Simulated scan of single mutants.
Amino acid sequence: MAIAVTQPQAPARRARRNSPMYRAWQRYRKNWFAVAGLIWVILFFIIGIIGPWIAPYSYTYADFLHMHSGPSWQHWFGTDTVGYDVFSQILYSIRYALEIALGATCVSFLIGVILGLWAGLAGGIIDIIVMRAVDFMFALPSFFFALILMVLLGKGIFPMILAIGVPGWAGYARLIRSLVLAMRNGEMVEAARALGASQWHIARKYMFPNVVGSMVVSLAFGIPYDLTAQAGLSIVGMGLNPPMPSFGNMLAQAGANILGFPWLLYFPAGVFAITLLSFLFVADGLQEAFNPKGGV
Rank of each mutant, 00 (worst) to 15 (best):
F136H: 11
G168Y: 00
I128L: 15
M160R: 05
G124H: 04
R184F: 05
A192V: 12
L175Y: 07
L153F: 15
I176K: 06
P167E: 02
L121I: 07
I129T: 09
L147K: 04
L121Q: 02
G123K: 06
L195Q: 09
A170F: 03
I176E: 01
Y172P: 06
A119Q: 04
A182K: 15
G168T: 01
R132M: 06
I125Y: 15
I125H: 13
F138S: 02
V166R: 03
A191V: 11
I128A: 15
A192G: 03
Q199D: 12
G120L: 02
P167C: 00
G165H: 05
M183L: 13
I148D: 00
A194K: 06
L149E: 07
I164Y: 00
A182P: 02
A122E: 03
P141W: 02
I129Y: 08
L175P: 02
L121V: 03
L179A: 12
I176M: 11
S198T: 13
L121M: 14
M150W: 12
R177Q: 07
K155G: 08
M183R: 14
D127R: 06
L162S: 08
G123I: 04
V166K: 00
V189L: 08
L162K: 02
G120R: 01
L162V: 12
E190S: 14
R193V: 11
A170I: 02
